[in-house]
């Protein structure tokens, strides 16, 4: 895309893009740590996840302030306006994903107090898909790649099915042995948080399509 005649506008847009990318990297790191905590039964990383959440919260405010300033000073239109609107929405989504990472930590804290019911197979898979969707949605935003964004939208059903499978399996374990209730409930909560992360990735993908093409594809499957 051609540069703006006003170079300061380009610099401001690059700056906000770089900030949202940094924020996304931190959130992605948080998600990696949560998986590590569960699979390696490693509670030490939880402190790091909480520290990163504080940084993410701070960045959310800074990025919103920067967008507000750019809108006021440069009065953007068309793709520039859609981009800045997209950034403010993605900013909120990233902060919410950070919150889900904290919720997942709390679940893991409780899960690790009990003996593992069975080897985790579907849960790491759900982790993997949700994280991939998240990372790919952010990459799609940075490159305004609508093709990738649309392919992410298609994966949401896969996440829902996997979550449902995990929930059903947990219910079966609880029916079989009531001593499994504590751990099973927390696994269900964890799976729900992962499903919400995938939902945010889907929202980010919809924002990518809006920013790139001006098409609002939200709620089209309803």
């Amino acid at each position: 895309m051609a540069q703006h005649l006003d170079r300061n506008f380009d610099i401001a847009l690059e700056s906000v893009k770089s900030d949202i990318l940094k924020m996304g990297d931190i959130v992605e790191f948080m998600l990696g740590d949560t998986l590590k905590a569960l699979m390696e039964r490693n509670l030490n990383v939880i402190e790091r996840i909480k520290e990163n959440e504080v940084i993410v919260n701070k960045m959310q405010i800074e990025i919103d302030e920067l967008c507000l300033k750019i809108i006021a000073l440069h009065q953007p239109t068309a793709i520039d306006l859609r981009f800045l609107m997209g950034v403010t929405k993605i900013n909120t989504a990233l902060e919410r994903i950070g919150d889900h990472a904290i919720n997942i930590c709390n679940c893991i804290n409780r899960i690790l107090q009990y003996k593992q019911m069975k080897p985790y197979v579907d849960l790491p898979e759900l982790f993997k898909i949700a994280r991939e969707m998240f990372m790919e949605s952010l990459n799609a935003f940075i490159n305004l790649n609508t093709e990738n964004a649309r392919s992410i939208l298609l994966r949401d059903d896969q996440v829902d099915s996997l979550r449902d499978k995990i929930v059903q399996e947990c219910i079966n374990y609880m029916i079989k042995d009531s001593s499994n209730v504590n751990i099973a409930v927390n696994i269900i909560l964890l799976a729900n948080n992962l499903e919400k992360i995938a939902d945010h990735a889907t929202n980010i993908s919809e924002i990518v399509i809006f920013v790139a093409q001006g098409k609002d594809v939200r709620h089209q499957s309803e």
């Binding site: 051609a2 703006h4 953007p76 239109t77 068309a78 306006l81």
Partner: peptide, 15 residues
């Protein structure tokens, strides 16, 4: 918000 032609977009966004 959503100009149909790239030339319109370049003009109104100052590119």
């Amino acid at each position: 918000t959503v100009p149909g032609d790239i030339r319109t977009m370049d003009y109104i966004t100052g590119r």
